[in-house]
Simulated assay, not measured.
Amino acid sequence: MGSVNVALDSPGGNVWVAMSIGRTIRKYAFTTRVEVGATCVSACVYLLAAGQARYVGGRVGVHRPYLQNDGVTSARATKAQYAGVNVQARQYLEEMNLPTSLHDRMMQTPSDRVTWLSAKDLSTYGLTRMNPPSPRPAVP
């Protein structure tokens, strides 16, 4: 079996689920890809980070994780949830061998905004680690 490519094109989602899927991507040494024309934003970046190899031809955007306010949880409990996700997200990125400066950049951007990463940012944060492979020949 050849290498497995995980194509990413997502506006984000649940950070906890993304980290869980990311650990599976890393366990099996899959390659993560954001193709030209695709976007990978928010929780999707945790999937991109998990790739044994990573290719970015599209756009990647980051922001602070968003936690839904259920209207019942107290302010203290909400603050504790944010503290927990902050610690877990930082540890996850370290587990993926990425610099904590990526986490810091995420936390600097409010969850209702997006910071689009430049090619230099992607390289600095270790989110690109390969050239795109040659296209595979079509199977008749």
Rank of each mutant, 00 (worst) to 15 (best):
A89I: 09
A89G: 12
A89V: 14
A89T: 15
R90I: 06
R90K: 14
R90T: 01
R90Y: 04
Q91G: 10
Q91C: 08
Q91K: 14
Q91T: 08
Y92G: 09
Y92M: 06
L93P: 14
L93T: 10
E94L: 07
E94Y: 00
E95M: 14
E95V: 06
M96K: 06
N97Q: 15
N97P: 02
N97Y: 08
N97M: 12
N97K: 06
L98H: 14
L98G: 11
P99D: 08
P99M: 08
P99F: 05
P99E: 07
P99Y: 04
T100P: 01
T100Y: 01
T100K: 07
S101E: 12
S101F: 03
S101T: 15
S101D: 14
S101Y: 03
S101V: 05
L102Y: 02
D104A: 09
D104W: 00
D104T: 06
D104M: 02
D104V: 00
R105S: 14
R105V: 11
R105N: 06
M106E: 13
M107G: 05
M107L: 08
M107Q: 13
M107A: 06
Q108E: 10
T109R: 02
T109Q: 03
P110Y: 02
P110I: 13
P110F: 10
S111E: 13
S111Q: 14
S111K: 06
D112V: 11
D112C: 00
D112R: 06
R113G: 00
R113I: 00
V114I: 15
V114S: 07
T115A: 04
T115M: 04
W116M: 15
W116C: 08
L117A: 01
L117Y: 03
L117I: 01
S118A: 02
S118E: 10
S118P: 00
S118R: 01
S118C: 04
A119K: 09
K120D: 15
D121I: 00
L122E: 06
L122N: 03
S123D: 12
S123H: 13
S123P: 05
T124E: 15
T124L: 00
Y125R: 04
Y125T: 02
Y125N: 05
Y125E: 00
G126C: 04
G126A: 07
L127T: 03
L127H: 04
L127Y: 03
L127D: 00
T128D: 08
R129F: 10
R129Y: 10
R129P: 05
